[in-house]
């Protein structure tokens, strides 16, 4: 059997997983895409184990270990996702911006802005609002 078959399938699966991680918004779908990437790696490990005819079966044993680590990862990941859902009532990864660097603002503050756009000081750079004061107020707004 050609070695090209499993390696090409694994490469395609890995890039599908990359697309899913980057394009999906729901955190559970992102976890599913991570699983796809891990499976691509597993397929490569098994294929190269067979190619080398490893007497210690290193590739297959490492595949088993990867499966166990994937199980641990999905358990912890789902626990974190459920905790985020309990706190925020949504799990959209591109709206969870509380830990973002400066310049980005949490989604809740943006929602408040949309509710009352008049009395919130503008972004730094707007006339009449010095940038540092705006930044300081933003830092206050995110405890």
């Amino acid at each position: 059997m050609h070695l090209a078959y499993p390696t090409v399938v694994a490469a395609l699966l890995f890039s599908i997983g990359v697309y899913g991680v980057l394009a999906r918004r729901n955190a559970i779908l992102v976890l599913m895409s991570v699983e796809l990437m891990l499976n691509a790696v597993n397929l490569n490990l098994v294929a190269f184990d067979m190619w080398f005819r490893d007497r210690l079966h290193g590739g297959q044993v490492l595949t088993l270990f990867t499966i166990v680590i994937a199980a641990a990862e999905i358990g912890l990941g789902l626990a974190i996702v459920l905790l985020v859902y309990r706190n925020r009532q949504m799990i959209d990864v591109d709206r969870l911006r509380t830990l973002a660097e400066d310049g980005a603002r949490p989604a809740e503050a943006e929602a408040l802005d949309e509710a009352a756009p008049a009395d919130e000081p503008g972004e730094p750079g707007l006339p009449g609002e010095p940038g540092e004061a705006g930044a300081a107020r933003r830092e206050e707004a995110t405890p």
């Binding site: 090209a4 090409v8 890995f14 890039s15 980057l22 394009a23 918004r25 779908l29």
Partner: peptide
């Protein structure tokens, strides 16, 4: 709304990844 706004960028990155990996493996 399951897909975020950067899905075309993601598709480009994934296509590039697939091209590089398949080329290297082949």
């Amino acid at each position: 709304d399951l897909d975020s706004g950067n899905r075309w960028v993601a598709a480009g990155v994934a296509a590039a990844t697939a091209a590089v990996l398949v080329t290297v493996m082949a």
